[in-house]
C-alpha cells in the first residue's frame, strides 16, 4: 500500500519535520502572533515576514467529513469507503486540518466505521510511523 506522500514546499516543510518528530506545529506570525494555515511567506494581518512554528495541543473537533467511494487512485480505492475529516483545532479555531479518523495510530483509513463520524466530535492527533498526522476519537 503506497499512499501519496506530501509534496512539500519550503514554507510547508517545517510542518512535516515536526510531524515526523510526533509534534503538531502551526506557523504563526512572529510579530503579531496570528496563526496562519497553510503556511506562507508573510502575515496577511501585519505584513511581517518574521515567522515561527508554535506547538499546539493536538486537540480539536470534527468540522466536516466526507466518505469517498471509487473511482479513486488504486491504493485509496483498496480502502474505500474511508473517511476524510477536517479538524478545527481547539487552540486555534480558524485553523482547520484535513486528515483521517482512525482507530489507532498507523491504522488504515477505513479503520473507523463511517457511522461513528459526526460533526463536533472531539478528536486528538496521533502520528503514523511515517509521521503523517492522524486523528482518534477522544474518550469522553
Amino acid at each position: 500500500m503506497t499512499l501519496l506522500t506530501p509534496v512539500t514546499d519550503p514554507e510547508g516543510a517545517p510542518f512535516w519535520e515536526h510531524a515526523r518528530a510526533g509534534r503538531l506545529h502551526i506557523q504563526a506570525c512572529a510579530d503579531c502572533g496570528t496563526f496562519r494555515f497553510p503556511p506562507r511567506p508573510c502575515c496577511p494581518h501585519c505584513q511581517s515576514f518574521a515567522r515561527e512554528w508554535r506547538e499546539v495541543s493536538g486537540h480539536g473537533r470534527i468540522w466536516s467529513y466526507v466518505v469517498p467511494h471509487p473511482p479513486l487512485l488504486p491504493d485509496y480505492a483498496a480502502q474505500a469507503p474511508y473517511n476524510v475529516i477536517v479538524v478545527e483545532l481547539a487552540d486555534a479555531p480558524r485553523i482547520r486540518l484535513v486528515g483521517n479518523l482512525v482507530a489507532r495510530a498507523g491504522a488504515r483509513l477505513d479503520s473507523v466505521a463511517p457511522e461513528r463520524l459526526r460533526i463536533g466530535a472531539r478528536v486528538r492527533v496521533v502520528f503514523d510511523p511515517a509521521g503523517l498526522p492522524q486523528w482518534v476519537l477522544e474518550r469522553s
Binding site: 506530501p6 509534496v7 497553510p38 466526507v66 469517498p68 479513486l72 485509496y76 484535513v98 483521517n100
Partner: peptide, 23 residues
C-alpha cells in the same frame, strides 16, 4: 501535485474535486 494545497489534502485521500466540495 501542487505543493499548495495538495500537500495538505491529497495524502489523506481528499483526491478529487467532488471530495473537496463534498466537505
Amino acid at each position: 501535485q501542487l505543493p499548495t494545497p495538495a500537500q495538505w489534502t491529497r495524502p489523506f485521500g481528499l483526491l478529487r474535486p467532488v471530495d473537496e466540495i463534498a466537505m
